[in-house]
Amino acid sequence: MEFALIFKILLITIVFVITLVVAMYSTLAERKVAAFLQDRIGPNRAGPFGLLQPLADGVKFFFKEEIIPTHSNKWLFILGPCLAMLTAGMTSAVLPWGDVINIDGVDYMLQGTDINIGILYIFGVTSIGVYGIMIGGWASNNKFSLLGAIRASSQMISYELAMGLSMIAIVMMSGTLSVREIVEQQDGFNWNIWYQPVGFIIFLICSLAETNRAPFDLPECETELVGGYHTEYSSMKLGFYLFSEYINMFISCGVIAAVYFGGYNFPFMHDLGLSDNAVAILGVVAFFAKIIFGIFFFMWIRWTLPRFRYDQLMKLGWQYLIPLAILNVLITGAVMIFTK
């Protein structure tokens, strides 16, 4: 019991540290990918291949002047970035990072907690994630920030619907709301993407919109709104907002990998002749490989597609994605009844 508790605390700490490190290096990867796609070299001054660039950025953020505008609402102005960071870090609790590891005859689960409503928990945290942006944008007392905040909230509400509907098809197929059980059912190469390609595309588009990534980065659209909701922010508070976006990207790639790409499962995992523990560790590596490819894909999209106009964004969400997602649910249900 004692060791199980220590193991859990250790696991949660490691997951938190990995989340931060991945988010940190995503900022560098973003610039490297941008440079690669635009035929440039990218940052290469700080350390070998620019590997110390995220550290330099962090130091810069900490030493910049901290400005709280006089007309702003001080406490809410501070609360905004804190909430953004908090909600970004919460989802990782229900993601299964790997299969069970057996030490001295006791099984240890490589997951924060396996609650029976894991999928709903993810949606709950996603739906409150917008408060950080809204509160920060409103408390700045600046019309550009306010417009950014309002855009963020309506965008979130619109895309959450289609996201939930595309997930319902998965829940119908697997008959469970636990993320671990959904992953266990995708054993080997039996991934959900082969059964739900339309649902996957809807979920991917909605994830881009929920994480405020291009082409859906309307809340911080710099050509219209200066900096959007973080116009008035400086120093580490701005850093928190930018950082939470990368954490969100990491987590949503994790959700996509777990739900559609089999999580820690990989092809021929039972034919390698390795012990269960070795397969579990390889599974963790496979899961992270999927997440990192997902992050690269998000960046690829950002540097390829131009930003949507706001009415196009709303039209795509309400007139195309939601009807398509409902149709997907209906077809999934019909196929399930006829193949039973």
Partner: peptide
Amino acid sequence: TGAIMVLFLYVIM
């Protein structure tokens, strides 16, 4: 908290 209050806050803002 996730849907109704976001809309409330949206309208007030």
